[in-house]
């Protein structure tokens, strides 16, 4: 079958294609899953906003035919918090890299989760800083080689899903770019759920991380994900650390309810008015 129109044409800013990502990079898969989930959600397109920080992942919103804001490095979350406070009707999704969200933006991340502000955060974790040439990230596993850990990383990395759940996220999941359908469903679930949702997507960086750690081609990495991934819904996020030789535990780890920042804020305003 020959089609003259890409099924996502309406959702993409076609004039900005070709995109910047390397062959077999996982970021495009995440972008596709987001659009697919957004379409399925029935959310009014005019009410969907995508926000990102700086990095290869941060370039996603630039290719989407949606209201978008590419903030400075690390600041996507406070910026998105401002949007949600000013207009709670918007469905706000943050798509950014592990360095952006957990190194320079780490403080913002734990506070946004603590507030339980109604945002969906999708973090593309490629274990490195793709955009700046493959430096060590707060997610880089021990012993992994990077431009700034030339003899092997010796710092303990973050386990992102554990950080998110400990900080108060009400929805926490992890998938890899191999799990396309499950990832798309998780995004759909997260974006229609009220409160702070977090999805970690394990994704290949063929140019930096995969090369310096000899992980092979894009296909090899997909095979690696297939062999290493173990689905364990409801598993204790504290026990899902990723090392260079461990399994990759994926699944939905947290799905709970608690009043959101906006709920509490409305409640608070109501009380203040009553007591006037």
């Amino acid at each position: 079958m020959v089609i003259d129109k890409h099924p996502m044409d309406d959702w993409l800013r076609k004039d900005r294609i070709p995109h910047i990502w390397c062959p077999s990079c996982g970021i495009g898969i995440v972008a596709t899953c987001y659009i697919d989930a957004l379409r399925a959600s029935g959310i009014d397109r005019d009410k969907a906003t995508v926000i990102s920080g700086i990095g290869c992942t941060g370039r996603i919103p630039g290719y989407m035919n949606l209201d978008s804001f590419h903030t400075t490095h690390g600041r996507a979350l406070p910026f998105a918090t401002g949007i949600k406070l000013a207009n709670p009707e918007l469905n706000v999704t943050i798509l950014s890299g592990d360095g952006d969200l957990f190194a320079i933006g780490g403080n913002h991340f734990i506070h946004a989760a603590r507030r339980n502000i109604d945002l969906t955060v999708i973090c593309v974790n490629n274990f490195t800083y793709g955009m700046t040439g493959g430096q060590v990230a707060p997610t880089t596993p021990m012993k992994a080689i990077s431009a700034t850990s030339p003899y092997g990383n010796f710092e303990h990395p973050f386990n992102l899903v554990h950080v998110a759940s400990a900080a108060g996220a009400i929805y926490v999941a992890r998938w890899t770019t191999l799990h396309v359908r499950r990832l798309r469903n998780a995004i759909l679930e997260a974006m229609t759920k009220r409160g702070f949702s977090f999805i970690e997507v394990i994704s290949p960086c063929p140019t930096s991380y995969a090369r310096s750690n000899k992980l092979g081609t894009g296909l090899d990495i997909m095979r690696f994900y297939q062999q290493r991934s173990v689905i364990r819904h409801g598993f204790d996020p504290a026990k899902t650390d990723i090392t260079m030789s461990s399994e990759i535990i994926v699944g939905k780890f947290v799905d709970s309810e608690k009043p959101t920042f906006t709920d509490n804020y409305e409640e608070y305003c109501k009380k203040l008015k009553e007591n006037k």
């Binding site: 700034t148 850990s149 030339p150």
Partner: peptide, 21 residues
């Protein structure tokens, strides 16, 4: 930063990549 971290062993330099500036 990368130059000095790659020379850290040779010249006894502590080269740390921080979480932000």
């Amino acid at each position: 930063l990368t130059f000095l971290s790659q020379q850290s062993r040779e010249f006894g330099i502590i080269a740390e990549q921080a979480e932000d500036e």
